[in-house]
Amino acid sequence: MKDGYELVYKRPATLLDARMHYCPGCFHSTMHKIIMEVVEEMGIEEDTIGVSPVGCSVFAYNYMDIDFQQAAHGRACAVATGIKRSLPDKFVFTYQGDGDLAAIGTAETIHSCNRGENFTIFFINNAIYGMTGGQMAPTTLEGQKTSTSPYGRDIKNVGHPLRMAEMVSQLPGVAYCERLVLNTPANVRKAKKSIKKAFEIQKQGLGMTFLEVVSNCPSGWKCSPVESLDFVGEDMLKYYPLGVKKDVTANSN
């Protein structure tokens, strides 16, 4: 280091020194990074168990230096229920994409939220199936073109994009629910605070903590990473408004 300078940011040690398989500019990587930053800052590396889904983030376990289980498609919430019920003092989280959480795994999502399971769901909503090559997701926007909606999503045929944060925030078992985005440094810093808050609520055993992250998919959307910021900021956020949807700690703060 140069004399007269101090370190202000470095890669967290809990993020393993492995090159992530995600495409350039993918927010999955950003999300992995900030979850590990929070885990490191809270000093809970030895007390945290993650559950990875099926989808692009199936390999999340390759990058996070914590215990991990890899779940069947859509079943991360059931797996996390089993882990948390066995180890109530540990921090448990699922990391799931839109296909996993909001299509094939909808029942597990709703019921684990409704039971008020004390784990955290990180829901990465990028409105597309990334791993399988860009097919339509339950959260694909109306008119959005994907490989299985080549003329744009037709809501008369396939229905409307699901607003999961709004849905689960209605359930009494949910303690904290917020929709975040990672498109600017300010929003990334904000997301980190929300992740920390979710883990703290989990520690208090107040119920489910659900963070939906409006994300991108430059490869699936067929645009550059910088161009994907426009689609996130202009189109996605219009349909998926940011903000805290529910916070049972709000009055006590």
């Binding site: 289980q69 779940a71 079943r75 089993g82 882990i83 066995s86 180890l87 597990e108």
Partner: peptide
């Protein structure tokens, strides 16, 4: 725990058995 389905049950088993139970 009464789960929401057999599909959920078996995956809860995966999680809980994997946690050492």
């Amino acid at each position: 725990l009464q789960a929401e389905s057999e599909v959920a049950s078996v995956n809860m088993l995966y999680g809980a058995g994997g946690a050492g139970g």
